Structure formats: structure tokens, C-alpha cells
Computed example of a mutant assay.
Amino acid sequence: MRYAFVLLVLLFGSAQAAEQVRLTNGEWPPYLGETLPHHGVASRIVAEAFALQGVEVQWEFHPWARSLKMAEQGLRDGSAVWLANPEREQRFHISEPVVESGYYLFHRKIHAFDWSDVEDLRGLRIAGTRGYDYGEAFERAEAAGELKVVRLTGDEQGLRQLLAGRIDLFPVDKVVGFDLLYQKFSAAERQRLSFHRKPLRSDSLHLLLSREVPGNAELMQRFNRGLNQLRDSGKVSQYLLEIQQPLSLSH
């Protein structure tokens, strides 16, 4: 009888452990962040989609490059949230879209600005954040020297340089940009900035689960089911609406 009880405890403990997933994460408010409510809206969507499938997420926050590498090597089960590309498809199971991201060109209101193609950006002083990919056309023009782009350490620095007049344009995810402006800048500073309505790039962001971890293919199927359940419930739209700052910058 005692042996049977111990066996049940061991089996129950194993079942519990199997229903946890270890994911890496990084800092990109309001989508992701260790100290944000629910660790950010994208983290909340991932965690609640898994919860609908009976899986608990254990988050770890690291610098972005380390987060991706740990997941790629199978040291952690996966990472959230990332762009999908052919290289990552070889190393990860990639989820259905978790959130959508749109990068827009921010500028000072006193600087009249319009564009339709990347060629229209030539001759303008542009900054970008290190490690960020602003789309194939932009990256190709930057690499060829057709665009003069200074890479900075973060989005806040870019917006400050824009306000200081050191640069003419700064691309940033619109939701991230507005969150920064409302969290770190004054109302007077916000009123000096605008953004062009044409996105520099628009993408979906995804959960990645490592192909090095056994069972992750089936786990991704479960996640996608939970994500669709969460989306059908209206909660995904609700959570995304909750992080939207008033879009008062005129175009």
C-alpha cells in the first residue's frame, strides 16, 4: 500500500512538471518586460493561451541575444516574441501570430516630411536601434551606404535625439513609441513630434519553441489552439486596446 502511494506521488509530480514550459523573454515595453503587469501584453497573451491548454509558463528575462540563443540550443523550451523568417523556421517551431507590430517614421512637426519609397529617405539624417531590422529595402539601402543611418542603444535615445534636432527621422514601433513618449517625456515634448502614416514595415510576432526539445511540436499545436480560444473570446483585442496610449500626435 505504501509503495502504491509513493508511486502515485511520483507519477502525479511528473505530470505536474510536464505541464510547465520554460520560456525566455526580454525588455520591450509595453509588449514585454520583467516588471510590467503580466510581464507585458504579449507575455500575457502567451501565458493565458498556454493556461487554456493546462500549461503554466515559467518566464526568464535575459538580454535578447541570450534569450534567443538559450531557446535555440534547447536550454529553455522557447522564447517570446519574435519575427518569423526562414532561418528561424529551421531551428524553431513558430506559432501563429501573437501580436502585430508596425514601424513608423517619427519626425519633428516643424520638419515637413513625406515619402513613398526608401529612395525618398536619402539625404535625411536617420537613426535606428542596434539589432533592429527595419525591413529588407531599408536594410539593403543602409548596407549599400545609400542611407546614412546611425545606430543607437535604444528607442528612447532615438526619440531624444529627434527632439534635440540631431536627426530627422527615427523608426519605431508605434505602440512602443507612444508608450515611451507617455512614460518618459513631457506633454510639451510629445506635441513636438509626429509620425508618417505609411509604415516602414509591418509584421506579426510569434512564440518560438525550440526544435531541440522533444515534444515541442505537439506543444506548439496546443499553444495555437489556446491562442485561437483566447482570440475568439475577445480577450486578445481587449488586452491590446488596454495598452494603447491616446494617439494624439497629428500626422
Rank of each mutant, 00 (worst) to 15 (best):
Y103C: 02
A187G: 03
P246Y: 09
L75W: 09
G154S: 11
S233L: 09
G74E: 06
P97H: 01
E27A: 08
A144C: 12
S233T: 05
G123N: 12
L68Q: 10
R66H: 06
D133L: 15
L8A: 10
V6E: 13
L230R: 08
A141I: 06
G165L: 05
V98N: 09
T153W: 12
E146P: 00
K174Q: 10
M70S: 00
S79K: 02
S237F: 11
N216R: 14
E48I: 05
K174N: 12
E242Y: 07
Y31R: 01
F92T: 08
S237C: 11
F113L: 04
A84E: 14
Q191E: 14
D117R: 12
D203F: 13
G154F: 06
S204R: 14
G26L: 10
L8M: 07
G54K: 09
G74P: 03
A188K: 11
E34F: 00
S210M: 11
R91I: 00
N224D: 15
E119M: 13
I243P: 01
R122W: 02
S248G: 14
V175H: 06
S67M: 02
R201K: 12
A143D: 14
S95F: 03
K148C: 02
L68C: 11
R197P: 09
S95H: 02
T129N: 04
S233Y: 10
R122A: 06
S194F: 04
A143C: 08
H38M: 03
R140F: 10
D155L: 11
R44E: 10
G135Y: 10
S43F: 07
V150T: 15
I243N: 03
M1I: 14
F92E: 06
A137Q: 10
G131P: 00
F92I: 05
E27M: 08
A65D: 05
H196L: 06
E119V: 13
E212Q: 07
L32K: 03
G215N: 05
E218Q: 08
L241S: 15
P199D: 06
F223N: 02
K109P: 15
M1H: 15
L124G: 00
L8I: 13
L180N: 01
L230Q: 04
A217G: 13
S116P: 05
Q244M: 09
L208V: 03
H206V: 04
D114P: 10
G40N: 06
R231W: 15
L75E: 15
V21I: 15
E56I: 04
A144Y: 13
P86L: 07
A143H: 13
H38V: 02
H206F: 04
N224G: 11
Y182I: 12
Y31F: 04
A144V: 13
S186N: 10
Q73H: 11
P97D: 02
L10F: 09
L193R: 00
E142M: 07
A188L: 09
D168G: 05
Y31E: 01
P214G: 08
A137G: 10
V46M: 05
V21E: 07
S67L: 00
E96W: 06
A18R: 04
L241M: 13
A47N: 10
V21K: 11
R225I: 03
G226P: 04
P246D: 12
E142W: 09
N216F: 08
G154I: 04
A15P: 14
D155S: 13
Y104S: 00
E142A: 12
G131A: 01
A65I: 04
Y239D: 07
A112I: 14
S233E: 03
F178A: 09
P86K: 08
L147G: 03
Q238L: 07
L159Q: 00
F178K: 03
A80M: 15
